[in-house]
Amino acid sequence: MSDMMDDMEGGEGVVKKFMFVNRKAPHGTVYALEGLEVVLISAAFDQDVSMVFTDDGVYELIKGMNTKGIEVKDFSKTYRALEGYDIEKLYVEKASMDARGLSEDDLIVDVTVLDSAEMASLMAEQDVVISF
């Protein structure tokens, strides 16, 4: 593990469209946290990265979490660091929010809300889709 790779910005190579699909609630399983870490690491490779939140995955972005009582890290704050990692394409499916009584105002970061058809075509145009 060296800092070297991080410095290889602007290197040659093909830029692919990567999509990370988040469908799990935070804390109950380790998927949400692991998925976020993979995204942060992927940022070092300068690819075209999108993050999608559907189904229970929308719960990952809820504002105002307080994890002291269950003694785990509050990684919801880390979603706000994504911008600094140049990961700015965050998409949330409207139907998933509606089914949970949630709206954009309940989320900790700015996102683009898509209807299911828009989400489907976004998925269809990716080179690589990785699901958590």
């Binding site: 942060l40 070092a44 880390t78």
Partner: peptide
Amino acid sequence: EEYQIAPAVRVLTKA
């Protein structure tokens, strides 16, 4: 404290 992660060097430099 703010983001709950230690930044990668590229991100640190920018910040």
